[in-house]
Design a protein around this nucleic acid. Structure first.
Length: 229
DNA sequence: ACGATAAGCTTCGCGATTGT
DNA sequence: ACAATCGCGAAGCTTATCGT
């Protein structure tokens, strides 16, 4: 069967799609038992769903020795390989590469423009979703909730932690929407992503300063940031 | 080497849904 | 109305690892 058809077929099942989203958000390997418990389904069914997702390379699996004896359990996690579906066919990834390379040709000026545009788009992205609200009237916790919802819309699943006495928000991203491009040019793309995120946050927190703490391109499980309010 | 253990795999049947 | 397909659960089988 055509690979595209296979993917649509696999994701057409709502349980399977939910499992895929669950694994994406969790950003941790899951076992058949985990899925069975979380979705209240029989382990056989969970296994079937997971193996179908693996079949189309949305997930990959490996075995885990328990150290307790017994057959090792199988752990499923997100595939590093990106799966794209576009109808009709479009190649925005190629367009992004062309645009990025063109900007880099312009040197420092191009780089600065890239970052300021990223910032602008981050801010606009947030305002597009929640622009009608006045941030003045809301608590930090409520603002964080908005940020989280806004990030969900564009495929990021951040975990926020607000440390009140330090006036600081820590957060980590398990899924980078720019990962594909970041692999080719981590320095530029990750910085751009930082500016984009800062733009999003600046829509809510007027004086926020964002700093990258960990980067998944350097082998960390997530990208994490520290934002001083 | 072998038994115990734990987990995955296979097969079958049931019921619901969809297609002809 | 009937056939085909699919999701699901149960049961039994197989496989891989550990401890003795």
């Amino acid at each position: 069967m055509d690979h595209t058809l296979k993917i649509t077929n696999v994701l057409a099942d709502s349980t399977r799609y939910s499992i895929y989203q669950y694994v994406t958000k969790l950003n941790q390997p899951v076992s058949v038992t985990d899925i069975a418990q979380n979705f209240s389904i029989h382990p056989n069914v969970a296994r079937l769903h997971l193996s179908k997702l693996e079949d189309v390379q949305l997930l990959v699996s490996r075995t885990r020795k328990t150290g307790k004896g017994g057959r090792p359990s199988r752990l499923y996690q997100l595939s590093e390989q990106d799966v794209h579906l576009q109808f009709p066919y479009r190649d925005y990834h190629l367009l992004a590469r062309i645009a990025l390379e063109s900007l880099m040709e312009l040197g420092m000026e191009g780089e600065r423009t890239l970052y300021s545009t990223g910032f602008k788009y981050g801010k606009a992205m947030f305002k597009q979703n929640f622009g009608n609200q006045n941030p003045e009237n809301f608590s930090v916790e409520e603002k964080i909730k908005w940020l989280q919802e806004s990030a969900f819309i564009i495929g990021m699943f951040p975990n926020f932690e607000y440390v009140k006495h330090e006036e600081t928000i820590f957060f980590s991203l398990s899924n980078c929407p720019f990962k594909d491009l970041a692999k080719e040019n981590p320095q530029i793309v990750c910085t751009l992503h930082g500016f984009f995120l800062e733009g999003m946050m600046r829509a809510l927190f007027m004086n926020i300063q964002l700093k990258e703490v960990h980067n998944m391109m350097e082998g960390c499980a997530t990208c994490s940031y520290k934002a001083a309010l």
